[in-house]
Simulated assay, not measured.
Amino acid sequence: MTLTTFALLGVAALLVGFAKTAIGGVGSIAIAIFAVALPTRESTAAILLLLLVGDLVAVWHYRRDADLGMLKRLIPAVLPGLALGALFLARVDDTTLRRCIGVLLLVLAALQLVLSWRSPDTARIGSSRTAAIGTGVAAGFATMTANAAGPVMTLYLVAQGVEKRRFLGTSALFFFGVNLCKVPFSAGLGLFNLDTLWHTALLVPLVLVGCWVGLHTARRLSQTRFDQAVLAATVVSALALVVR
């Protein structure tokens, strides 16, 4: 691995930690960086391990804020989504997977943009059982193929008007559970190797730094303006994956 590649992955690791404790949309940028810097399959496994590190910090910090009732409605539908994502990973090559990740991120970015224009009726739609099932399946597939379920979860939680700490606590516990479920799927696909584990271990301190920065930033910055910048960066990153 070149110094430039490791520097890019270091930036991505910082963003992973920041996304877990502050603004989840930043995670899309980290996903895009990993997919460009590493072979695409290896990137999904490496970033999964880093996400778990960030999840542990987020769950600990927001452990009293999770909405367990909401999680019970979502979790059963996640497993079929994970299975579909694993099947997809097993059947596509790196180029196709990279471009699919790019397209997926573009679609999810568009969903985030739609959120900003949503009508008052959105909250009623978001609270339905159908919405919970659809969100669970979509989140499972998106996270298995691209570690990109954050915008899907955001769409669901924001549609229900979830306040900030409840949002962060529910997301933290949801993604910790989902990412743990992904480990055996990824191992079964042969995505973990010694190089991946070594590179991940070197990047863990940067994830922790990102978590620390995120915890402090979440209290100070305007989330609306920051989300706009993150959305633009996500679109640029996704386009780079599609045309590369």
Rank of each mutant, 00 (worst) to 15 (best):
A159L: 04
A138K: 00
S127F: 08
T154M: 00
G161L: 01
T135P: 06
A131M: 06
T145E: 13
F141A: 03
S127Q: 12
K164N: 10
A146P: 02
T135I: 03
G136M: 09
Y156H: 15
A138L: 12
V158F: 13
M144L: 15
G126D: 13
L157S: 04
L157Y: 06
F141P: 06
V137N: 04
T130M: 10
S128M: 01
A146I: 08
Y156G: 00
A142L: 12
R165W: 05
V152N: 10
L155Q: 02
G136F: 01
A132P: 07
A139Q: 07
R129S: 06
F141Y: 12
V162L: 10
N147T: 15
I133K: 00
A139D: 11
Q160N: 14
A148V: 12
R165L: 04
G140A: 04
P151M: 01
P151D: 05
A131L: 07
V137T: 07
A132E: 14
E163W: 09
G126F: 05
A138N: 09
S127R: 12
E163I: 08
S128I: 00
R129H: 12
A139K: 00
P151R: 00
Q160E: 07
G161S: 13
G136T: 01
L157H: 08
V152E: 03
M153F: 06
A139E: 02
R165P: 11
T154E: 07
T143S: 13
V137Q: 04
V162S: 06
A146T: 11
A138T: 13
T154V: 05
P151L: 11
A159R: 00
R129G: 15
G126N: 03
V158T: 06
S127A: 14
G161W: 12
L155H: 00
